Simulated assay, not measured.
Amino acid sequence: MCLGIPGEIIEIIEDRPDLAKVAVSGVKRTINIGLLDDEPPVPGDWILIHVGFALSKIDEEEAKAAMDFLESIGKAYEDELAALQESRIE
C-alpha cells in the first residue's frame, strides 16, 4: 500500500527552491516541492508527501486528521515512514 503522509515545511532550501526540509513524525528530510509550482509552500505550511515528493498543500486540520488515521492503521503507516526515512533528495 502506498500512502501520502503529511509533513510540515521547516525550511525552503535557499539555492534549490524546488527542495524543502520537512518534519514528519519526528523525521526530518529534504523533499522535492517542485510539483507545487502553482502555489509554492512556505515554512509552516503542511503538505502531503509520497516517496519524497510533495503532492499537494493541506491545512493543519487535514494534516492532523490524516496523521490520526495513519497512526490507527499501524503497519502501512510504519512502512511509509520507513520509506520516507530511507529517501534522500539532495
Rank of each mutant, 00 (worst) to 15 (best):
V27D: 10
L19T: 01
S72G: 09
D37Y: 15
D37P: 08
E62L: 09
I10D: 07
D79C: 09
I12A: 03
G7A: 07
A82T: 08
Y77F: 14
D59T: 05
L55E: 07
I10E: 10
I5T: 13
L81Y: 08
S72W: 00
L70V: 01
S25Y: 04
G34C: 02
I12V: 07
I89L: 14
I89M: 12
A82I: 12
D79I: 06
L48N: 05
V24E: 02
L36W: 11
P17C: 10
A54V: 03
A66N: 08
I89D: 05
V42P: 01
Q85P: 06
E62G: 03
A20G: 05
E90S: 09
N32F: 08
G74P: 06
G52A: 00
I49D: 06
K57D: 15
I49Q: 00
L3E: 04
D79S: 09
F53K: 04
I33F: 05
K28E: 11
E78G: 06
K75C: 15
A66P: 02
E78C: 12
E80K: 05
G34Q: 00
V22I: 15
D45E: 04
I49Y: 04
Y77M: 14
I58G: 07
D38Q: 11
P40V: 03
L70S: 06
K64Q: 07
I58F: 12
M1K: 07
E39K: 00
A23N: 06
T30W: 01
E71M: 12
I10H: 04
A83V: 15
Q85L: 14
A82S: 06
V42Q: 00
L19G: 04
L81M: 14
T30S: 06
E39T: 13
I73F: 14
I89H: 07
A66M: 03
E80L: 05
V51C: 14
V42R: 01
E86Q: 14
P17V: 12
P43N: 02
